[in-house]
Nucleic acid binder design. Structure first.
Lengths: 341, 341
DNA sequence: CAACAAACTTTACTTGCGTAAAATATTTGG
DNA sequence: CCAAATATTTTACGCAAGTAAAGTTTGTTG
């Protein structure tokens, strides 16, 4: 903390009277040295400002303390929140989380994986882009680095942790059908397995309930989902082209845009009798509770997904191969009834 | 790309017939070797899969290619967007950006700085927590690492790049006064210089215009700003405690919450004659265009701030000390007139 | 083709720490 | 209090590069 800066373990050994190998042991695991030595070391650390050089450490350790987190788009509220939770758990467990964003682009995802691999991380948590991912790259990465795939189930890595879209979509479709006009389904052309699953489950559930599925699929692929919801929603409303006045959006960000579209077109949204339209989303994004009206949606169990992903990765790192071949853990969601549907 | 994997430069030297020091030169700057050698190396790289070990590189180089980016809260849309832009520019310039989030906590900010410092980065871009920052830590960090401070002007580092709050608040206060009832100002107890500046500029501008300033300051400090806006806004509206029906919020996230509060209390927001209340924000967050009604606000010039911060850092890294002692670059904002005020 | 510079190879040292083996010291407990 | 068990020190080497100096090759120019 305090005094002069000491730059190497060698120097610290000199001023503390403890040998360098013992110091090395201490920094790997403070509990692995005798109490008396530990206090001596900690006293020296009080008087001299020293921090081990991470590069030197990782060059020599067979297993680094680095954990890579790769997400498709770090500015997306869902991933931002997910990353936040994962980072916390990694830090608390004494690991060193490094976050990479693919910024929605295949090349940058590949790049992130390559960079990460050259860091020889202890493990990686990867939320792939989905359809745009370079499957071979991901697989060859996952062959080298203990990898848990989360969010989007690209069939690579040692395990998958994600959300049970069948359960959640069935839940919200059922709810919407029971409480009013059966919903149409608004989506972008699916870019990942989740989006696909959601659409298919919507169709299946509608059929089960004896309704005609109505899917509106717009062919856009920016990461600016709200804009897509707003623009396409406005078009649909203005042209009176909606097959149902109840709209289930494939995710909350689209729904946020769709809500704005309704508002701007003077359409009142909600489940009350005075409302002309119902809009529901999926994910329970952090924003969903602050829309006007507050968004009815199905939650993803963020913290369960984050927690389990990290736990499974830690197990992997400690050498516990998962029992099943490539387990897929899904967490269900809860219906979040707010005012919009 | 293709064939057998080669793990060290030594091995690559063996199979390529080029000496290791020359390879080292090549990886530092491909243009620094003769064309004929360059092609030979690139041919070898085609046949063997090799990537230099980042740890070894950084341990030995006096100057690493690492750039640290530290933000107070990575899940905040403003910082998420900022980070996205900064990362891009760093990658394009051949640097290796590493993002750290303080998760709103002093200890984690210190921790991030400590970790970062042990990476001996070429430079750092730091958006401090503000009032919660440990000034001594930041300063001692900035003494060692070429640092540009952005967003929140903690007086450390070699330069500051940020937003001109005086200009933008004056702009929006003027606008609001000209177009209707003079605004009251809604804020959390300021946690950083920006918030302070905004409040003070509000007060000054109101006085200049001959109006009585009306500041509503709530004593909360979570990072869940929207919730604060919603809860406190609801309270104020329900208790009819607002000194003015025009509310200027200290930032867009508060405004988003306030909009929700108005909606939920049945108060119509907007600048039309049929509206009971006007709400404006500050920052032009990515969400602001999708609120209901769309949020009138003042923009921050995100990309200018990101760009200039990075450029100044690159100059610093290349040894160009800034001319002034510690220049402070401010970018002005533009009034974004939408429907809410 | 000689002269010279630029590029390259060889050699050898540096970085900061992990780690293994052998020697020595300390603790434990019977 | 002594032997066994445990912890620490000493010594020495390894990692994957950067880098510097000296010698060699290649390329260019007049």
């Amino acid at each position: 903390m305090g005094g002069r800066r000491v730059n190497t373990m060698e120097e610290l050994a000199a001023v503390s009277g403890i040998s360098r190998p013992t110091l090395s042991k201490y920094f790997n695991d403070p509990d692995s040295v005798r109490v008396s030595t530990r206090t001596k070391i900690q006293q020296a650390l009080q008087r001299y400002d020293y921090r081990p050089n991470i590069f030197a450490i990782n060059q020599n350790r067979k297993l680094t303390k680095t954990i890579g987190i790769v997400v498709p788009y770090s500015a997306d509220p869902f991933f931002a929140e997910m990353v936040r939770m994962i980072e916390r758990r990694c830090i608390d467990a004494g690991f060193w989380p490094l976050v990479f964003s693919a910024h929605g682009e295949r090349d940058l995802e590949n790049n992130a994986l390559a960079t990460l691999q050259s860091l020889r991380p202890a493990g990686a948590l990867l939320a792939p882009l989905g359809r745009s991912s370079d499957f071979d790259s991901v697989q060859s990465f996952a062959d080298e680095v203990p990898t848990i795939i989360f969010d989007s189930n690209l069939k690579a890595g040692k395990a998958f942790v994600g959300h049970d879209n069948s359960q959640s979509i069935a839940l919200v479709v059922n709810y919407l059908c029971r409480t009013g006009e059966p919903p149409c389904f608004f989506e972008m052309v699916p870019v990942n397995p989740n989006a696909n699953k959601r659409r298919n489950t919507y169709i299946a559930t509608m059929k089960e309930l004896g309704h005609q599925p109505m899917v509106i699929s717009v062919d856009r692929s920016e990461w600016d989902f709200e804009r897509i919801g707003l623009e396409e929603g406005s078009r649909l409303i203005a042209q009176n082209a909606l097959p149902s006045q109840t709209v289930l959006c494939s995710n909350d960000r689209l729904a946020v845009g769709f809500l704005a579209a309704a508002y701007q077109n003077g359409v009142k949204v909600g489940y009350g009798d005075d409302c002309a339209m119902r809009i529901a989303g999926h994910d329970d994004h952090p924003q969903a509770q602050f829309t006007c009206p507050p968004l009815t949606t199905v939650s993803q169990d963020y913290s369960a997904i984050a927690e389990r992903s990290v736990d499974m990765l830690f197990d992997l790192i400690e050498g516990e191969e998962p029992e099943a071949d490539r387990p897929e853990v899904l967490f269900g969601g809860k219906l979040v009834m707010r005012a919009s549907a």
